[in-house]
């Protein structure tokens, strides 16, 4: 075909995606946080199939873009916990501005 392979994100040179396991369904994803409020999540077909929230069927919306899966709250929490524990590295060295235990 001669189509060049997609290139990896240059930012991964400074810090790669790391594995995170969801505490709710054990789905494994790759995640990266450049700061407390930035998150990248790479799912796989397997992880998506394991996700409980993904399987929940919501009433269909009549708006064209509102039927998409927004994301998993349990996974979001798992990624945050991994960051607080230190098992998921945060690129930015700034300390967490709020008390993680008190943050909802």
């Amino acid at each position: 075909m001669g189509t060049p392979a997609p290139r990896p994100d240059v930012r991964l040179d400074d810090g790669p995606m790391q594995s995170v396991t969801c505490t709710a369904c054990a789905a494994q994803v790759l995640a990266r946080k450049s700061s407390w409020d930035q998150t990248s999540v790479q799912w796989t077909e397997q992880a998506l199939a394991a996700c409980n929230e993904r399987r929940q069927t919501l009433p269909p919306q009549e708006r064209p873009n509102r039927n998409a899966f927004l994301g998993c709250s349990a996974l979001k929490e798992s990624i945050r916990e991994a960051a607080v524990r230190g098992s998921l590295e945060i690129q930015d060295q700034d300390p967490l501005k709020t008390n993680p235990e008190g943050h909802q």
Partner: peptide, 12 residues
């Protein structure tokens, strides 16, 4: 799969 697998990115 890497072209179509779900990917999420939230900016700070």
């Amino acid at each position: 799969p890497e072209m179509t697998d779900r990917f999420e990115f939230e900016i700070d």
